[in-house]
Simulated assay, not measured.
Amino acid sequence: MSVMHWTNVNNESPSKFNRQSSETLPPIRKRIQKRTEKSLKETTFKSLYKQNKLAEIVKKAQENNEEIYEEYDEIKIQGSILKINDNVIIKNGDHNVEDYVGTIQKICSVLEPQTNKLICMCQVQWFMKKSEILIHKPRARCWIGTQEIFSTKKNDFILAQTIIQKCKIVDCDEFVNLENSDLTTYYNRLEWDVENKKFTNMNEIQLYCLCQQPWNPELNYIQCDKCQKWYHFECVNLIEGCYDDKEYNCGYCN
């Protein structure tokens, strides 16, 4: 039986499997970049639209013909005037998933050359919802509120027609003091790092109760009359309503 072994033997004849020197890499990169740019130029707006590559549509329009690209300060959608920096609810194509929340950063349109139809788009900066965070931080379920959202640095272009309506985003303290709020009112106090799947400013949030969790404005707390600290009823084994008219002292102050 004959057996062939791979060995590190120096061979005078060049092999096609030999690694290329670093001197050859820049020209290769340039050729790849040129091919990519050429491919983008040859790609039609229609095909990019079908692939939902809206950022590429904007880039192609800006590079090829400035006359077909235009930016605006406001746009009318669903009978409402929307402006840059407005917070909006954005329709999710999957009916089984919650709608999205974002802030409008740019409003623009591209005139499709072949059909002369306008592709109206908005660039939005995304917020993450509770359901999206819990995939990566399931233990945060007890302190993240239903109406809490998390700012990110991620932004994308969306079709303007996918915007449902404006929404309101306040800080946590303002949310607690609101007399009337609905499902279009959210609060934000933390930023989420999309790439690394973590909170970026968790050390700035005050922790409460024996369980040392951030404040959840949608839960009920009881305050110790001596130390002024706040506790969940469950964590101190109390029934809600039993201390409405009498003094409460926590286990440390009792």
Rank of each mutant, 00 (worst) to 15 (best):
N87T: 01
D156E: 15
A160R: 03
T36K: 15
K59F: 00
L159H: 11
C122V: 00
L210Y: 03
E66D: 09
Q123H: 11
Y72S: 02
K83A: 14
E42Q: 14
L219M: 11
G93S: 13
D156W: 10
I68H: 06
E148R: 03
T200E: 15
H232Y: 14
K168L: 07
F127G: 08
D173H: 10
D182A: 02
C227Y: 08
S151R: 09
D86W: 04
N18A: 05
E71D: 13
D193T: 12
A61D: 03
Q165Y: 03
N155Q: 13
K41M: 05
G79E: 05
P138M: 14
T44D: 00
C242W: 11
C250T: 02
S80C: 04
T146W: 10
N96H: 12
D244C: 08
N92L: 00
F199I: 02
N87S: 06
K59Q: 04
I149A: 10
W143V: 02
D225W: 05
N116M: 03
Y208Q: 07
K154G: 09
R19Q: 10
N196A: 11
Q123L: 13
D225L: 02
D94P: 05
Q206A: 12
E56M: 09
K59H: 02
I104H: 11
T44F: 00
N220F: 12
D99P: 01
K197T: 02
Q114W: 00
E204D: 10
N155P: 04
K197P: 05
Q147C: 09
D193M: 11
N196C: 08
E67W: 02
I119C: 03
E74I: 01
E191K: 01
E74S: 15
E70T: 06
K197G: 06
N155T: 02
Q51L: 13
N254Y: 07
